[in-house]
Amino acid sequence: MSEILDDMDSRPGSTTSLLRTIVGIYVRELGGWVSVADLLELMDALGVPDPRTRTAIVRVKKKGLLVPETRDRVAGYRLVDEAVPMLARGDRRVYYPRSMSADSAWCLVSFSIPEENRHLRHQLRRRLHWIGCGTVSPALWICPAYLLEEVEEILAELEVREHATVFVTERPRVAGPLAAAVAQWWDLDEIRGHHEQFLTEHGPDGARAMDAVISPREAFSIYIRSIDTWRIVPYIDPGLPADLLPPDWPGDDSSALLHTLRARFSGLATDFVSQVTGTRIDNPGRDAIRPLSGSARP
């Protein structure tokens, strides 16, 4: 189920990706249900016209994230139960990215999947890549030990646990500098590119955050687009030790920008969602939800 729900292939900035970002941040806080009209209005704040949003809703529904449900004669969508733990795991990744120190433990994943199940081999490699694992060889992957639980979940969900051996170990020993090996195991240029894209696209918003007067609607647009760009970064970047990365690595700068944007815009963005839906949300991640006075919405 997680492979269907964890749609990492949606391009950040696309209509489908923006819709998923809104769903991921707010629908749990709305009691797990949102009306079609409210989704259309929220997407309109991002400059997305209704026809494109409706198409994206269909795509997200096909991915198994939402199911149609009418409440009090209002058409809407309910978040599927299986999505809740996936989104909670995503919260931890997106908002609280972890990083290794020089003495942190590592995880090695060795597998040998029979040829008749080569489609599972492809899925396993794809999903290991999307949680930040590096490739030592086609059948030997490496990651920080704090990703062990996610590795085990992937192996169990694909039903290939019997074909894999997982090791937790100290820092690997290689013939040359470990930093050189790390640069072969991970595509550091790709990871750097995502960090730099986030800094380039949203750095100006961070500069404005200090003293600009911004409406809740504008803050919502800035916040959703920034999280939508950022959400890929903590998945493909496993948080490698600083001594194994290039000295000009942009990871700290992009993380600092994320914190700046969240501090400045997330509260106003939540206010806008509360206004649109008629449901007061204190803060994403909290359970307190109460109807706005005079609201007739479910």
Rank of each mutant, 00 (worst) to 15 (best):
M1A: 11
M1I: 11
I4G: 14
I4N: 13
L5F: 15
D7K: 11
D7Y: 14
M8P: 06
P12V: 04
T16P: 05
L18P: 01
L19I: 09
R20W: 12
R20V: 12
G24P: 05
G24K: 07
V27F: 08
V27R: 11
E29Q: 12
L30S: 02
V34G: 03
V34F: 07
V36I: 04
D38F: 10
L39E: 04
L42N: 02
L46P: 00
P49R: 03
D50E: 12
T53Y: 04
T55G: 10
I57R: 01
V60I: 09
K62C: 07
G64P: 05
V67E: 13
R71T: 12
R73I: 11
A75L: 11
G76K: 04
R78A: 13
L79H: 02
L79K: 01
L79M: 10
V84L: 06
V84F: 08
P85T: 02
A88N: 12
R89H: 15
G90L: 08
D91Q: 12
R92E: 14
Y96T: 14
M100V: 02
S104V: 03
F111Q: 00
P114N: 05
R118S: 06
L120M: 13
L124K: 00
L124F: 02
R126I: 06
R126M: 14
R126H: 13
G132N: 02
T135E: 13
S137N: 09
P138Q: 09
W141I: 00
P144F: 09
Y146R: 04
E150W: 05
E150P: 05
E152P: 01
E152D: 12
A156I: 03
E157T: 08
E157K: 08
V160G: 00
F167P: 10
P172C: 13
P172V: 15
R173I: 09
A175F: 12
G176C: 05
A180V: 06
A181H: 13
A181S: 15
V182Y: 03
W185P: 00
W186H: 04
L188K: 12
D189Y: 13
E190R: 14
R192D: 11
G193N: 07
G193M: 10
H194M: 08
H195D: 09
E201F: 03
H202T: 04
G203Q: 09
G203F: 13
P204I: 03
M210I: 09
M210C: 02
R217L: 13
R217Y: 07
A219F: 07
F220Y: 12
F220E: 02
S221H: 09
I224T: 08
I224P: 02
D228C: 04
W230S: 06
I232A: 14
I236Y: 09
D237C: 10
G239P: 00
D243N: 11
P246F: 02
P247S: 06
P247Y: 03
P247V: 03
D248N: 14
P250L: 05
G251R: 08
L257E: 00
L257G: 06
L257Q: 03
L258G: 04
R262W: 09
A263P: 08
G267D: 01
L268G: 05
A269M: 04
V273N: 00
V276T: 10
V276S: 01
T277D: 13
R280G: 12
A288C: 05
R297Q: 07
R297K: 12
